[in-house]
Design a binder for these strands. Structure first.
Lengths: 331, 331
DNA sequence: TTGAAAGCGTTACCAT
DNA sequence: ATGGTAACGCTTTCAA
């Protein structure tokens, strides 16, 4: 089923059929001819061959999205958002799941072989590494969930506001000794969250105490360890950077015989189904991760269209989802 | 950087360069010419344009994989496996994440526009629905994690053996009143697991008691409800079909004041990081989900190569990962 | 309003 | 052992 077939069946030239089926702006065709072609294409279930089209136009109407891990609700939902936005604008999404270290090769291949018109990139790597990886890109790109000095287009979540929001929930419940389980030291989001944590304390007139901050990374084990180290400080509440570290922290608390939330409250950042799987179910601050994918895709598509889109502000946190893990501060 | 550029630089014809660079079987070229072309292509960093190649050969060396959800460890890991196998055999993977209901359209589009040479399909839909969806496929496909009567190629996990393995762990610990939280009624894997559960009981000389089986589906809430309904039966152990329903069940047990594992043991099927996030950490039977993706991709590629691969047997379960949620039966 | 034809970058057949 | 040259299916400029 090629364009030639359709044209022949409609008794017109390929070029005419092409113009009509593409819905070209200046539809230089008689209405009658137009509908006839459309109808026949419909009947024949004609679908243009994207390879032939791409070869000719040097465009694929495809966006590449490279993520470091698939089974991570943050990225899964960003993909979903990007997919929706892309589809709405007539683009497809080529999802590329790459282990750290393979990123450079992937970006190089995917972008240098005309497979995609642009790239959406999420990465957990350090700035230096990411910069090197991206140097191989031969197409425009938008960063997701992190910034990179020098890279103009990126979409991030307002981690600072989110952390602050979490702390405010706790201070409103009367907590004053609030610990913070930070993520990877030096990471963009980790820095932001720490600042938000401090903002929240300050707003409640609580002095920042470095002894209440632990580095948990992004694993349950890290959360467990960090929480254990923090126990002697007797916090009455904990703000964890992620659901995973929150889960690890809760294990430590359970083992220490502390009741959640009667003795100590726990709150995590990023809401996801797993929050409801923990016991007690974890209170958390929802983050607009799907929106992040959406916005990033929109930005990229506009850039591809020759626009010079203005940088977008960090996406504000979503709702505070109160579940069973937070309660009033003990007396 | 096109083939013509390379050919010109090497002082040979395009057709010669093409033969060499593709590594054609009968390398009808002088060794000297061969290395020169190779060297120049290398220097120029030549990469063939897949669109042009695909247009000409009617192949894309790309496999499509359509999954119903991305943030599901089972599918994430199947994708990983498929990706590895595909890469090893020179294929790329086009990941397509589709909500139920969009599957048919996706399959139609992706397979009828020559974007992929074959399809790897995972689906949670009923047989009828899936059959309809697949009818639109114009390329060979392999099913993952389920069978479909009439579809010759599929790769499944041995859920029956896995369930049995879980039950045997429990009976070895002295449990005799073992409940089963089943998945979706009528589903392929649900049936298999139920059978494995019965196998395990029988092996230990325990009579099957229908009252100990509840349907939990694949959500935490479902697990919570089903467990609550089962409580009056006073089981001393529970075999949950998935980690998610196990988590839901554990919430019920905690609320009922039952200690895990002192009063009641819990075991889940499919091992994943989330098992370690629960409290207590969940004992589970690992499943070779990555292997499933690998095998499925291998099968598909062989089918594309014109082979007529024999059906593969269900993949046996992996290790029993003993964590804190199982222990000796109470006296 | 419509048609003709060139060309996108490859491959593969047929010459030489 | 190598080169010439049609396709592959589409878009797009130019003519009619």
């Amino acid at each position: 089923m090629t364009l030639a077939d359709v044209a022949r069946a409609a008794g017109v030239d390929m070029s005419t059929a092409s113009r009509v089926l593409r819905g070209e702006a200046s539809q230089r065709v008689r209405e009658e001819t137009r509908v006839r072609i459309l109808k026949i294409a419909e009947e024949m279930q004609y679908l243009a061959n994207p390879l032939a089209r791409g070869l000719r136009t040097q465009r694929t109407d495809t966006l590449g999205i490279v993520v470091p891990q698939l089974d991570n609700p943050v990225f899964a939902s960003a993909i979903r958002g990007a997919e929706l936005e892309a589809a709405e604008r007539g683009y497809s999404l080529l999802i590329s799941h790459r282990e750290p270290g393979e990123t450079a090769t992937t970006i190089a291949k995917i972008s240098r072989t005309n497979r995609v018109d642009g790239l959406l990139v999420a990465s957990l790597d350090d700035d230096e590494v990411l910069r090197t990886d991206l140097a191989a890109a031969r197409v425009p790109f938008v960063l997701m969930n992190r910034i990179l000095p020098g890279a103009p287009l990126s979409v991030v979540l307002d981690s600072r506001a989110a952390a602050r929001k979490g702390v405010e929930h706790l201070t409103a419940l009367g907590h004053r000794r609030i610990a913070h389980l930070a993520g990877r030291e030096g990471g963009f989001n980790a820095r932001e969250r720490l600042q938000g944590y401090r903002d929240g304390l300050e707003a409640a007139g609580i002095a920042f105490d470095e002894a209440l901050v632990g580095v948990a990374g992004y694993t349950a084990e890290g959360g467990t360890q960090a929480m254990r180290a923090l126990l002697p400080q007797h916090p009455t509440a904990v703000l964890a950077a992620t659901l995973v570290s929150a889960a690890g922290a809760m294990a430590t608390l359970h083992e220490a015989g502390l009741r959640i939330p009667e003795d100590i409250s726990v709150i995590g950042l990023h809401d996801a189904p797993v929050a409801g799987m923990l016991y007690p179910a974890l209170t958390s601050v929802a983050m607009p991760t799907e929106e992040m994918g959406r916005v990033a895709a929109g930005l990229l598509i506009r850039a591809l269209g020759g626009e010079d889109p203005a940088p977008v502000a960090p996406l504000p946190p979503g709702a505070l989802v109160v579940r069973g893990s937070t309660g009033p501060a003990p007396l």
